[in-house]
């Protein structure tokens, strides 16, 4: 469970994130909002990559800035800054697996489940990660998250960089993952269709504030479309 108390982050007097209280429990949670609404900053705050002006983020009741235990069960992919560009994809997967005490055989097994997702472009490509296309880099990032078998998974705009088939596969994978064990999956996206399709709860952000927080229902899509039409 992630708990956010009294969290504030500003950039040169402009509010980036301002959340008084938020609890995130197991489920697939979608984060929507226009550019600059603070989605990525919120993710970075949750990952202890940005220092808040005030307030705290607790992961399983422990302050993430004071204790590094959350790293054991949190996997995330925000952008290429999470990949090590001069490694081959395999090297990167083994490295990440090793940090979570997975053997190579473990990692290989996990990867074999992803052959369809990779579509023949990532593994044994004879390229360093920096030479892959942006979409394939994204696949490497997502796969690295899956290898960790996390309790909390954070993905920033995963649909934006993927081709249509991979988008559909990702939705399937996320659903299966959520069925397999209770976990938090946090996804941000501009794609309202996808997000209402896959998420159980949706947070709508505007200028750093969470202005709406609702469980997904049949009217959610129209509600969201009404908001963004303005």
């Amino acid at each position: 469970m992630i708990t956010i108390n009294n969290l504030l982050k500003t950039y040169s007097r402009k509010i980036a994130v301002d959340i008084a209280q938020l609890e995130i429990r197991n489920g697939i949670i979608g984060l929507v909002g226009n550019n600059g609404a603070g989605k990525t900053t919120l993710f970075r705050l949750i990952l202890d990559l940005v220092k808040p002006d005030r307030g705290e983020v607790l992961s399983n009741e422990k302050d993430i800035s004071k204790n590094e235990d959350w790293k054991n069960y949190t996997a995330s992919y925000i952008d290429e800054g999470f990949l090590i560009p001069y490694l081959t994809p395999e090297e990167y997967f083994y490295f990440v697996g090793k940090l979570h005490n997975r053997t190579r055989a473990n990692v290989d097994e996990m990867l074999s489940g992803l052959t369809a997702f990779f579509d023949g472009y990532v593994l044994k490509s004879g390229k360093y990660i920096r030479d892959l296309s942006k979409g394939n880099q994204f696949k490497v990032g997502i796969a690295a998250c899956l290898i960790q078998d996390p309790d909390i998974m954070i993905l920033d705009e995963p649909f934006a960089n993927l081709d249509p088939s991979s988008q559909i596969r990702l939705i399937q994978m996320v659903r299966e993952l959520n069925k397999k064990k209770p976990m938090i999956i946090l996804i941000s996206s501009h794609d309202l269709n996808h997000i209402t399709e896959v998420c159980t709860r949706i947070l709508l952000m505007e200028k750093g504030l969470i202005i709406k927080d609702f469980q997904t229902s049949s009217d959610t899509l129209t509600e969201l479309e009404d908001y963004f039409r303005v």
């Binding site: 970075r44 990952l47 202890d48 990559l49 590094e68 790293k71 054991n72 949190t74 995330s76 925000i78 952008d79 290429e80 800054g81 999470f82 990949l83 090590i84 560009p85 990440v96 940090l99 979570h100 960790q148």
Partner: peptide, 16 residues
């Protein structure tokens, strides 16, 4: 040196 993927290193599962 690792500035380009420092985000990933800090969010990854390795203690500082």
């Amino acid at each position: 040196w690792q500035s380009l993927h420092f985000d990933g290193l800090m969010a990854g599962n390795n203690q500082i």
